[in-house]
Simulated assay, not measured.
Amino acid sequence: MEELLLESLYRYFVQPQIDTNTNTIIGYELLMKELTEEGWRLPKSFSAIDPQITADLLIETTKVLSDKVRRLSVNVSREQLMTTTISEAIIQSQKQIYPTKLVVELTEDESPTKYSNEEVKEKLNYFLDRGMQVSLDDVGTGINHFHNISDLLPIASELKFALQNFSKKFIDKSMQQKIHFWHAMSKEYGLRLVVEGVEDKDDHKLIGKLGVNLKQGYYYSKPQLLKLPNDCCLY
């Protein structure tokens, strides 16, 4: 029985996004993890998780956080985006946290099924019509390279650049050029640019010098487990 619990228990961890100009928390990203024998770990495959589990957990979690910040961000792959159960849970979550905005972060993960940008855009517009925002996550990696997401830029509100997705240190000039590129795209389309994966003071200062004020990473706060109301005896 204990093994079954360890294999099937998922919870969201929350990590703040910081505006370093004002030193304030502007939102929280929800990061799903699985409880394993080694502790809380990222699931090996988000697509393999029962969509109903993801949907129920999202609704419970957003209910707890609804009065904490202006924005809550949730990672959604293209496969999850097109899954009716999860789509409906996203809509219900936005309803229950209003006037807080739910930001749908479209991840860079490849999906088992290939979806066209038109299909993805249609679903994202469905969310926009219901008061949500769209973030393009991990830009420049996976399926979220510029040529794959350029059609989605006009409907987005945010770009996220993840330092941790690259092997080179941020001090490397090629890394800074990538930031310059996405900063330019954010200016051109009027989008927020969040740099995540900021782990030390040097990265914090350098990103600020490049004109980016919205940041996320261990330097500010590690993701914290968000316990749900009935969790007291689970772990």
Score class of each variant (00 low, 15 high):
107 T>G: 09
161 F>S: 05
194 V>W: 06
224 Q>W: 02
148 N>Y: 01
174 S>F: 00
161 F>N: 11
226 L>Y: 04
131 G>I: 03
145 H>C: 04
124 L>M: 04
187 K>I: 10
159 L>Q: 09
122 E>I: 10
208 G>T: 00
225 L>T: 04
177 Q>A: 15
209 K>H: 11
115 Y>I: 00
126 Y>V: 00
202 D>I: 10
141 T>C: 06
97 I>H: 00
214 L>R: 11
200 D>S: 13
218 Y>S: 07
138 D>R: 01
110 E>W: 02
114 K>L: 13
157 S>K: 14
199 E>D: 12
126 Y>R: 04
169 K>D: 13
94 Q>W: 04
103 V>Q: 11
132 M>A: 10
114 K>M: 08
205 K>H: 15
133 Q>T: 04
214 L>C: 09
194 V>G: 06
167 S>Q: 15
187 K>Q: 14
192 R>S: 09
121 K>M: 15
131 G>H: 07
93 S>T: 13
219 Y>C: 11
120 V>W: 02
191 L>A: 03
190 G>W: 03
106 L>I: 07
213 N>M: 14
107 T>M: 08
171 I>V: 13
159 L>G: 01
103 V>F: 12
187 K>L: 14
99 P>G: 08
189 Y>N: 05
175 M>Q: 12
174 S>E: 11
191 L>F: 01
219 Y>S: 10
213 N>K: 14
180 H>D: 13
216 Q>A: 05
147 H>E: 13
132 M>G: 06
167 S>M: 14
225 L>N: 06
221 S>Y: 08
220 Y>L: 13
148 N>E: 06
143 I>A: 14
193 L>N: 15
144 N>K: 09
199 E>T: 10
110 E>L: 02
174 S>R: 11
94 Q>L: 08
209 K>C: 09
129 D>I: 00
156 A>S: 15
182 W>M: 12
227 K>Y: 06
128 L>M: 03
199 E>L: 07
134 V>A: 00
108 E>V: 04
139 V>R: 04
179 I>L: 15
104 V>H: 00
180 H>V: 09
190 G>A: 03
182 W>Q: 07
128 L>S: 03
175 M>D: 07
134 V>H: 02
126 Y>P: 13
107 T>S: 07
223 P>F: 03
214 L>H: 08
158 E>M: 07
212 V>R: 06
160 K>P: 04
136 L>D: 00
176 Q>N: 05
222 K>Y: 09
127 F>T: 02
213 N>W: 06
134 V>E: 05
182 W>H: 08
190 G>L: 06
202 D>P: 00
146 F>R: 04
147 H>G: 05
211 G>K: 11
223 P>S: 10
119 E>L: 08
157 S>C: 01
94 Q>I: 09
183 H>T: 06
99 P>A: 08
118 E>N: 05
95 K>P: 01
160 K>I: 01
149 I>W: 01
220 Y>S: 10
122 E>F: 01
163 L>T: 00
148 N>F: 00
